[in-house]
């Protein structure tokens, strides 16, 4: 059974029909990427999964359990945690305080301390700066912090929304390295990316979204070879 499954999901912003029957599955331990142009519905899909938007039709299941009845905060404690687009760290709190906030759904103090250590192990940069205000970190460090903060909840599925946005190429590389490492450690990841080339390099499978619909769905390797994908998203003609 797939860990996360979307079946014919329709979402609306008011009257705007943003997702027109999206179906996808994420298996345990996989990296699945959603690629597509601006406005294709990538972020909307993530928002719908994390409960910020309600699907009007269709089902979202986590390990077979329907999530549509749950509110956003309940979905987090179910184990689906999103790293919001544009990093959004708590600028006036320190790095450690930010991380502790990520463990809000778990109240056990020693568990939290352990989780902090794990994140520091994953991102040694954050350990160096544990007492610094998050707002004074560089863009790349903030992305690490936002990711680390989401990991604090030990998510079953990690939703990554545009982790490469606004970062210098060298930082993009290091962020993707971390995603690969998380993958090796067994974290299940649903990755939304504009940078399709990078995304398809690390993902196992991919879905191509166009105006709210899945138009292609294949292994990442096949998608990289696909002519349409190459033309439209990889800039190869």
């Amino acid at each position: 059974m797939a860990i996360l499954e979307l079946e014919n999901v329709h979402s609306y912003y008011g009257h705007i029909h943003a997702l027109k029957g999206v179906s996808l599955i994420v298996e345990e331990g996989e990296i699945v990427t959603l690629i597509g142009a601006n406005g294709a519905g990538k972020s909307t899909t993530l928002k719908t999964i994390s409960g910020l938007l309600r699907p009007r039709e269709g089902h979202i299941r986590l390990n077979g359990e329907d999530l549509s009845a749950y509110k956003a905060h309940d979905i987090v404690s179910k184990g689906v945690v999103q790293v919001p687009e544009g990093r959004r760290v708590f600028g006036r709190l320190t790095v450690t305080e930010n991380l502790e906030m990520g463990a809000y759904t778990r109240s056990n103090a020693s568990e939290t301390a352990q989780a902090v250590e794990r994140v520091f192990h994953l991102f040694p940069r954050l350990k160096e700066r544990h007492n610094q205000l998050a707002g004074t970190l560089s863009g790349g460090e903030q992305q690490m912090l936002a990711t680390g903060r989401a990991l604090m909840a030990y998510p079953k599925v990690l939703l990554l929304d545009e982790p490469s946005m606004g970062l210098a190429p060298v930082l993009v590389d290091s962020i993707f390295d971390t995603i690969k490492q998380l993958h090796r450690e067994g974290t299940t990841i649903l990755l939304v990316e504009q940078n399709a080339r990078m995304a398809l390099q690390i993902a196992d499978r991919g879905y191509v979204l166009q105006t709210g619909q899945v138009v292609l769905n294949d292994s990442a390797q096949n998608l990289r070879q696909n002519e349409t994908v190459q033309k439209a998203y990889l800039g190869i003609s």
């Binding site: 994390s50 910020l52 509110k71 956003a72 905060h73 309940d74 987090v76 404690s77 945690v81 999103q82 919001p84 959004r88 760290v89 708590f90 600028g91 006036r92 709190l93 502790e100 906030m101 990520g102 809000y104 759904t105 109240s107 903060r149 989401a150 909840a153």
Partner: peptide
């Protein structure tokens, strides 16, 4: 816990929700 939730809320409401805060 409520105190921490308030702090997160004060800093960024959307992210607070993404942290699982009601």
């Amino acid at each position: 816990r409520p105190g921490r939730a308030w702090k997160a809320l004060r800093e960024d409401e959307d992210v607070a929700q993404a942290m699982g805060i009601n």
